[in-house]
Design a protein around this nucleic acid. Structure first.
Length: 665
RNA sequence: GCUGGCGUAGCUCAACUGGCAGAGCAGCUGAUUUGUAAUCAGCAGGUUGCGGGUUCAAGUCCCUCCGCCAGCACCA
């Protein structure tokens, strides 16, 4: 342990502590009471004169949180180095809701280690070490980290030299306590500010995010300006855990998995009912908009995928099997076979835009570690469609698709935003064609969404074309990739697609690939987490349950059931030999939207006592009125559940976290 | 695929450092005939993920494989 030149200092008064923020921090740095650097120096900083780290008095919350979290990462690194003097430190940025730091350690960390690291962090924080900084020539920094055996920092230094050129002549070091790090900042003034934190988990993480590089140990933590915020965030984590769709899926008997079909869903009757409701809605809404549905094979000779490029660009993700000395592929996407349909006969300009949808069963050989409930499966169905258009129809057609996106997401009251993904490293075709396609999507986005109101993700496009991705945000503030719109100039060439134009010339169509739900599986998973399993009535597997108070009224209960079923309502009678309270509890637990309690009184007057999942007991209503109401809610596909936003901690840090992490080390 | 953890009844979980696998819920049978979130009693339920090893003795320790979970990487 380092010996400080001066005893560490009295903490600020306790009443002040809870609300201490970066503003206080800025004032604190001037106070002589802040802990100074220890006498026994880290070899990295021998002979250097550090200056007090300047913290602006006023700063946006996002910036302050970023500063705090990045500093907490440094404090954690100090604690880890205390425990493992031979540790090599990698990088430790602030991220959304927290921070992490990557280490190369002699052994794996255990949960007990986390407790010990946290304990040491609290000691460091209590000491109130100042964060200090110094600028040194690049070459000197390299010497120092070389001598210290900090290989990863050497790589970071090399990267700085590569990417920043002249600007890399000098680099900055930061120090707190005994820990010295190559770092661009920013940091807080004193470790004392960083008290509202918690370490969350450890995991492996590839150095530089590169699967070919060594795997380091990453420790994740969260840090906030107040204890209340920290608790709010931890509560949010608990809520997210409770809403896990795998848990809800089991509790509500929607689906199961089996080890013998990893990554494939076994739909239970209740879950499959919901699944089919999605499909029915999808079919109805698309038929209205001029889509035609096709249904193609699932197994193809590899020739198809050689033509489409999947065999070259997507082979690792495909299930390939051998039969009759021939390679067959389970289809991973609907596009190639839809193209076979398109070229199955001559096409006229009069057919365009030709909107062909297919809810085919897709198989993708996802890596075992990627599988995750309904979110990531190996067999799934996309609400897919491919639209063949003439060049001049592209803009209008994309506008039309964006309109569908709006419709569908409005149905579930989901918020969403857009990302334009451009040409990836592994791409097919002529870069000039790509540029044209990207410009087309950009123009459509500018027109329909607004200039500058969408994100651009360079290099995230599909191998055959750029795309617009739509992310939905659930009530826990998490974002999910669902809808996608891809513009494809390449496959029409691969498949030599043509149509006869009005002047009798042969023209090449452009293909738009699009999905709105994305995959039904994933969308269902998202909806389950968003609603915690309380689905809107139109999707509920059982929309109403009749609760007879005793078996003396079973006949009347059957009569009520008939009335409901006559209106197409999915209803059941709970005729088990149980008390009413038990049946109501069961219905509540299973999140049945409507419960109709019937006893002797109701039987006499031809009514039912209505209770809904959302509103509780509502009192007696005539059967016809109840049936009318339920039937109407279903027909409207009304989103008759209340989903409160659950992010009850002030989360102003997302933007800061989305910043360039590569600048932090 | 990589790192770490986990795998006991349909579900949720027990079983101290190796020493007779147990409970609640669900299920079945019976009693009870109920007024807005769990009626009572009884019964039944297991080659402890698969395979191997160590040991007098393995749910427990070791190894292979499978699956799941949290991340990483990949992605709808």
């Amino acid at each position: 342990m380092p010996t400080p030149t001066r005893a560490a200092v009295t903490a600020p008064t306790s009443s002040h502590e809870e609300t201490m923020s970066a503003q206080d921090d800025a004032q604190l740095q001037d106070a002589s009471e802040a802990g100074e650097a220890p006498q026994v120096e880290n070899p990295l900083s021998v002979g250097l004169t550090f200056a007090v780290n300047e913290v602006p008095a006023q700063e946006a919350r996002g910036q302050r949180l970023h500063r705090l979290r990045h500093s907490t990462a440094h404090i954690m690194a100090e604690a880890v180095v205390q425990l493992f003097p031979d540790a090599k430190v990698a990088t430790g940025p602030a991220i959304e809701h927290g921070f992490y730091y990557d280490f190369d350690l002699p052994r794996s960390l255990t949960p007990d280690d986390l407790v010990e690291i946290e304990r040491r962090m609290r000691k460091i924080i209590k000491r109130g070490w100042r964060f200090e900084t110094v600028t040194v020539p690049w070459a000197e920094a390299r010497q120092r980290f070389l001598a210290a055996g900090q290989d990863y920092k050497l790589e970071v230094l090399d990267r700085i030299a590569e990417t920043q050129g002249e600007a890399a002549a000098v680099v900055s070091l930061y120090r707190q306590g005994h820990f010295v790090d190559l770092c661009a900042g920013p940091h807080i003034g004193s470790t004392r500010i960083a008290k509202h934190f918690k370490l969350l988990r450890t995991s492996g993480a590839y150095w530089r995010g590169d699967a070919t590089r060594p795997m380091l140990q990453r420790v994740y933590g969260t840090a906030w300006e107040t204890e209340a915020e920290l608790e709010g965030y931890l509560h949010w984590l608990e809520e997210a855990k409770k809403r896990n769709h795998k848990k809800i899926g089991q509790e509500l008997d929607f689906f199961t998995f089996h080890a013998w079909a990893p990554g494939a869903v076994f739909w239970s009757p209740r879950g499959y009912t919901v699944y089919q409701e999605f499909l029915t809605y999808w079919r109805q809404s698309h038929k209205r908009r001029g889509y035609k549905e096709i249904f193609n094979p699932v197994l193809y000779k590899k020739d198809l995928y050689e033509k489409s490029g999947h065999y070259t660009h997507y082979k690792d993700d495909m299930f390939i099997l051998q039969a009759d000395d021939t390679e067959y592929c389970l289809k991973p996407m609907n596009c190639p076979d839809t193209f076979l349909h398109f070229i199955s006969r001559r096409r006229s300009f009069r057919e365009l835009p030709l909107r062909l949808s297919e809810g085919g069963i897709l198989h993708r050989n996802e890596l075992t570690g990627a599988l995750n409930g309904l979110f990531r499966v190996r067999q799934f169905t996309q609400d897919d469609a491919h639209i063949f258009v003439a060049e001049e129809q592209v803009q209008d057609e994309i506008a039309e698709i964006l309109d569908i996106v709006r419709d569908v997401y409005a149905l579930f009251e989901l918020k969403y935003d857009f990302t334009l993904s451009t040409r990836p490293e592994k791409f097919m075709g002529d870069p000039a064609v790509w540029t044209e396609a990207e410009a087309g999507l950009r123009a459509a986005l500018d027109r329909c969404v607004g200039v500058g109101s969408y994100r651009v993700a360079d290099g995230d496009g599909a191998f055959y074309g750029p795309k617009i991705d739509i992310q939905v945000t659930d009530c826990l503030g998490r974002k999910w990739q669902c809808a996608t719109i891809q513009l494809d100039f390449q496959q029409p060439i691969n498949f030599d697609m043509k149509y006869t134009a009005s002047d009798n010339s042969q023209k090449r169509p452009i293909v738009i690939h699009r999905a709105v739900f994305g995959s039904f599986e994933r969308f269902f998973g998202i909806l389950l987490e968003h609603t915690a399993g309380a689905l809107p009535t139109w999707l509920s597997p059982v929309q109403a349950v009749v609760v007879p108070i005793s078996d003396k009224v079973l006949d009347y209960a059957s009569e009520v059931l008939r009335v409901l079923e006559a209106r197409g309502i999915r209803a059941e009678v709970d005729n088990r030999n149980e008390k009413m309270n038990y049946k109501i509890r069961q219905a509540e637990v299973m999140k049945v939207p409507y419960m109709l309690v019937v006893g002797a009184r109701e039987a006499e007057t031809g009514v039912a006592n209505v209770r809904t999942w959302q509103q509780g007991a509502r009192g007696e209503l005539p059967l016809a009125a109840i049936a009318d109401e339920i039937a109407q809610v279903i027909a409207d596909r009304r989103f008759d559940v209340v989903v409160e936003p659950l992010m009850d901690f002030a989360d102003a840090d997302s933007d800061a976290a989305a910043g360039d992490e590569s600048d932090e080390y």
